[in-house]
Write a protein that binds this DNA or RNA. Sequence first.
DNA 1: TTGACAATAGCACGATCGTTCGTTTATTTT
DNA 2: AAAATAAACGAACGATCGTGCTATTGTCAA
Lengths: 209, 209
Amino acid sequence: MSKGVRTRAAILGEALSLMSTDGLSGLTIGLLAERTGLSKSGLFAHFGSKEQLQVAVLQEAQACFTTHVIRPVLHLPRGLPRLEFFAEGWWAWNRSPPFPGGCPIQAASLELDDRPGPLRDEIAGAQRRLRAFIRQGAAMAVTAGHFRPDLDCTLFAFQMVGIAFAQTMTCRLLGEPEGLDFVRRAWRLQVDGALGASQNQTGEMNHVE
Amino acid sequence: MSKGVRTRAAILGEALSLMSTDGLSGLTIGLLAERTGLSKSGLFAHFGSKEQLQVAVLQEAQACFTTHVIRPVLHLPRGLPRLEFFAEGWWAWNRSPPFPGGCPIQAASLELDDRPGPLRDEIAGAQRRLRAFIRQGAAMAVTAGHFRPDLDCTLFAFQMVGIAFAQTMTCRLLGEPEGLDFVRRAWRLQVDGALGASQNQTGEMNHVE
DNA sequence: TTGACAATAGCACGATCGTTCGTTTATTTT
DNA sequence: AAAATAAACGAACGATCGTGCTATTGTCAA
């Protein structure tokens, strides 16, 4: 591992932290150089332009999410077990990701949704891949007989994404300690509504209590 | 209406448009002065500081949301009817608000959630009030007998907020035209799950199709 | 160990940032 | 209409932005 890629990795790590609190637009080259102990020009040479740095940071964020949330559940049995562990890992990531701020992917999604260009393409791809992962996870649960056969897996992924955003709003913006409870209960309702008839314990509608 | 408040209103209107696309941090005084046809110093004098301008913009965004989404449903009968019309109005607002970009409140919520200060307080208050409105709307539906008595109205509001965020991601970031369908179906599932036993048409679990 | 090359620093640039100040032009009140 | 007040302007400030250069330092293979 040569020196160049090592410092580049260090830069991206620090950039991720900075971005998690101040957003993509708050990620400035001068500030990042100061935090990494490099000179502005020395740091700049690693990326060639601000936009390329931003793209690299977004990709690093995806890689970090994959190693922390996706990969740990891949060896679990397909279907509901894997989906449940993924959910728990995702809620944990959203509440306290390995950065000082919140999830950079969520933040960038709403920051870039009205600015076409390579950055939006990058974050849109990330969200598409994440939704595909959830959708396939739900489809496996259908195949395994955990979920009912007529489940709309795309809608399932849509709902799960919604819970994740609502969690960030409740846990991070409003700082409500009971936020995680709501997340788990909303997720439980969603899973219960997707179960196959045989698995469903309650013979009536999904009650909250 | 004196001259001062008139131009101030014009400034805030343009600021809302600018913020909807470029975010709070993209809202710069020079750019805003250029778009409004004012000089930087002339515009600046209306607010005294950048932060006060930002607070004013956030308040303006709330006022705009109230007149466009909240107020139109206040004269509707309490309970489910009002809640349904509010939902439809909110989805319409999220898909195409009266700005070139997306909903500024959603964007600011994720932009400010890790930066304590007056700005975060302002947007947090907005989200708290919105959630309280939904919660009370659900509570009215319980009182009216539309929703079952043991419904957790706070959780109901939590879930609805999630749908709104997922909509922005799907409709704006990913640009999927069928996004609104998912929103309506997710909302329908949520409402069906909250109905009183007598109102529930389907005797079985909530199926998607 | 030296030579080739990668990595970083230093310096400067034009542009824009938020902000201040004194002046000038509009508006409102007397 | 004149006086008083409000509103907007123009110029400048120090700071920081992203981005070029050239020079210097460090690393790694021959």
